[in-house]
Design a protein around this nucleic acid. Sequence first.
DNA 1: ATGCACCCGCGTCACCTGTA
DNA 2: TACAGGTGACGCGGGTGCAT
Length: 107
Amino acid sequence: MAVTGDETDTDTGNSSDLTACQLRNTNSSLPQEMAGASAHSFMKTKDTVQKRELRLMKNREAARECRRKKKEYVKCLENRVAVLENQNKTLIEELRALKDIYRHKNE
DNA sequence: ATGCACCCGCGTCACCTGTA
DNA sequence: TACAGGTGACGCGGGTGCAT
């Protein structure tokens, strides 16, 4: 919530344009940056951009892993459904056979 | 060949939850 | 309480099958 707000304030909306592209630009225009703004604020910006990129990279991988796990989970469920359907079929046949036996006994 | 609907995987954002 | 990781939701681009 507030936590993510802190991240997302810098991540989304206004600063969503601060991507690798901008990092590249700042790198190429280092001398002007130094002259214009303080070295401290420049480093801060650079650090912010790097942090964002790191977070995006981690989240990218997390999403990939999450999807992989989800697919695996769904496959597991489908297998289980198949097994249970087979069991059900077997039990229905067994029940039918037992009913037959019972009927013949009483005839 | 082309337009279209559908599916799939991806990247990103926003949010939630567990942990130090 | 700040932070990291997991995940649902969304939009996008590419692939595929199908009708025209």
